[in-house]
């Protein structure tokens, strides 16, 4: 787990440091917590790495306003395992077991934002598994999506696919 250090700077400011004097990259969460990580971790996060590359490595403190200090350690943990070549089915099963629905969504968004392909791919599957064979109502609730079909569209849909509205898995209780 990354070392957590209370932020001593405004996360939105970018401090310039000499790259040779600083081996680590500081990731600043949306709630101003600094996580110091190895450069190899940053490489896993394409968004972060391209940010570093664009400034020729001069900038090593990266503000990540969209990611909370609650979620960032999970992302870093996954990247560390990935670098070590230790992403196994067992690890992924344990990893996802720790997460409630809301956290899965947050991490997916974080992985998407940071452009971490392996994590995005893994969480895509996790989320897809939570859609598969569930009722449409459950999916809407899980994603917090409003039904915006017109009553006519909805009626047509129900008539056309009546059989799909029965026989689905029982809706899981939200784990939050």
């Amino acid at each position: 787990m990354a070392e957590e250090v209370s932020s001593q700077m405004n996360s939105l400011s970018i401090s310039e440091t000499n790259p040779s004097s600083s081996a680590t990259i500081s990731l600043v969460s949306g709630d101003d917590i600094v996580f110091k990580v190895e450069p190899t971790i940053a490489k896993e996060m394409e968004t972060v790495q391209s940010f570093i590359d664009e400034t020729d490595g001069k900038i090593t403190t990266i503000p990540l306003p969209n990611i909370s200090s609650h979620d960032l350690p999970y992302v870093i943990e996954y990247c560390e395992k990935s670098i070590a070549g230790k992403i196994t089915k067992e690890f992924e099963a344990e990893f996802v077991k720790k997460l409630n629905n809301e956290e899965v969504k947050e991490l997916f968004l974080a992985a998407n934002y940071l452009n971490i392909k392996k994590l995005l791919d893994f969480l895509s599957q996790v989320i897809a598994d939570r859609i598969a064979n569930k009722s449409v109502e459950y999916v809407r609730r899980y994603f917090g999506i409003e039904n915006d079909f017109t009553p006519e569209e909805e009626a047509k849909l129900r008539e056309e696919l009546a059989w799909t509205f029965t026989g689905v898995d029982p809706d899981d209780e939200d784990e939050n």
């Binding site: 809407r140 999506i145 696919l161």
Partner: peptide, 10 residues
Amino acid sequence: DLLVRAHNVC
């Protein structure tokens, strides 16, 4: 799942 679920959410 695509055609009966994802397709009908919104």
